[in-house]
Nucleic acid binder design. Structure first.
Lengths: 165, 165
DNA sequence: TATTGTTATACTCTATAACTATA
DNA sequence: TATAGTTATAGAGTATAACAATA
């Protein structure tokens, strides 16, 4: 299948792979910014595909996951943590509330603020969704060993939470 | 500044950081998918901010970077490599061509295809843009040593180019 | 006066289908 | 018949400003 003849395509697939191999020698392909973007595009495509049967996407899944935690975050805290605008969180919370997966509770200590918590149905939904996301992560990280995944996780954690702004 | 009293906010900043610290204990915060998305959001925000004075964003910068390489990629190859739809590449190439930074050249071996190459002005623009992106990468990866950055780069490369689909 | 949640709005990004010209 | 580039369009994601309730 491979050849030393200078770049002559046979099928669409091999052509694309040849081109990708050539372009991997460019400066751009060594930039962590670019690699992160490409890894995320691949990862969220996998996750969205496996979450679709549950009526979720990575963003609504993320809100649900934080609602299931015992932290009872406010919408503002969700927005900061997920790097979303507060107005986007409104829409995501609306959607999950309409599905009876989460509930808004007024915070007695600050009545402007609303704590987001999961319902029993929301916790059941999350259990399935978490399995789907685990499977997606397995697909996306198939090239790495368990130890390498742990290493990647710890490096990314330090980048993702470097300044907590 | 810190206290052992249970979660009582003083300023907006410390409140956000306290919440972020609490939410870092959740399951979601250990998912590589989530960490990758957050790292990318931070990284591209830095890069877009520093590229703005040059009239570029991360996507147009990426097209320019590949045009500057000696690979003379086709638009289809750009789309595959950058994980963009071919119709999006049309708009990006249009924009950079209008600025005289890149040029479309018909491929003599396949007249359907157009090779994308940078002009002299495009190479000068790229030189400045690359500095901006390097600075952005420095800001985003300040928490990591050089060795750790190399390690992160090699792990992400294997994830980003696992199957070359 | 400042902040939380909310609404409205616009802009960017992404995905899809159809068309043309070549192969 | 299939592919590269193009156009058009719709949908998803993102950013901004303004408002009411509360601090």
């Amino acid at each position: 299948m491979s050849t030393t003849v200078p770049a002559r395509r046979t099928t669409a697939d091999s052509g694309a792979n040849e081109a990708a191999a050539r372009l991997q020698d460019t400066c751009l392909a060594t930039e962590i910014e670019f690699l992160t973007a490409r890894a995320r595009a691949i990862g969220s495509a996998h996750a969205n595909r496996l979450l679709a049967p549950l009526g979720l996407k990575v963003r609504s899944y993320s809100v649900l996951a934080l609602a299931v935690s015992d932290q009872a975050p406010s919408q503002r805290e969700l927005a900061d943590f997920l790097r979303l605008d507060p107005s986007q969180v409104v829409a995501l919370v609306d959607e999950l509330e309409k599905r009876k997966a989460i509930a808004r509770r007024p915070d007695p200590r600050d009545r402007r603020s609303k704590s987001i918590t999961a319902t029993a149905a929301g916790r059941r939904l999350y259990a399935k969704a978490k399995d789907a996301v685990s499977e997606a992560e397995g697909e996306a990280l198939g090239a790495l060993s368990d130890e390498e995944r742990d290493l990647l996780r710890s490096l990314l954690t330090r980048v993702a939470f470097a300044q907590l702004d």
